[in-house]
Amino acid sequence: MENKQISPFTLFLLRFKKQKPAILALIILLLILAIAIFAPLLAPYDYTTPNYSNRLLSPSFSHFAGTDNTGRDVFSRLLFGARVSLSIGFISVTMGMVVGTVLGIIAGFVGGVFDSIVMRIADVLFAFPSILLAIGIVAVLGQGIVNVILAIAIFSSPVFARIVRGSTLAIRNTQYIKAAETMGASKRRIMFIHIFPGTISSILVYFTMRIGTSILTAAGLSYLGLGAKEPSPEWGAMLASGRDLMYGHPYLTIFPGIAIFITVLSFNILGDGLRSALDPKD
């Protein structure tokens, strides 16, 4: 490279700017985030109180997405649902990422017995399909949103542990780590001050994509009756409660599904874009 003054971050921004779909996805996600934050201001109706005189109204100008079987405005519930679904995604994946990253760095740097133990645990967790692991964990801990978050955090952590361990192994033999060791830096300092920044780019891509997957899994668990429950406006739970009325009132299943789909799609497109922008190839 000729121009050495460009920092890696500037380079990343320049490359990311070319990823048009990813930028669109980012804008959509920021919009959804704004909806989640300002839901009380945006929602035209109260999302919790039933209004039995307005049961099962089809979508119209007064109720954009119709009303459910207790007369609550589906559109308002969808806006509030953004809070629940986004929180589940962010909290669970952040927990999994922190645990996985710390374990991955230590395993990659220290090696030996600790490395073997962490990687065998990861193997065992990988031996369960993720939805099955989540069902198993919920079966032990009981149903509900908090346990769903825990379950997703548990099966997200080995993903991060593996990736971070891989990056750590690649970084630990570089010159600057050798230099830091020679200068007498402590192990902890080397791991978290010198190695960690080098793993951030791969973490970022997986973090973005995992949030999408987690929102899907959480909605799936709610659909199966193991996660969020009525009266929570979680999108999967809304979809599940609209299921029985699917034939006469398909909008009760269609709209929450669209909300989940667009959100997850945006996270995946953003993740793809970040990957291309961070990939040293091409």
């Binding site: 999408g212 899907l216 909605a219 799936g220 659909y223 999967g236 979809l239 299921r243 699917m246 299943t253 269609i254 599904g257 989940i260 789909f261 997850v264 799609l265 996270f267 995946n268």
Partner: peptide, 11 residues
Amino acid sequence: ISIPDFWLGLL
């Protein structure tokens, strides 16, 4: 990869 399988099934 983004579509909820349960939603696809219902559709």
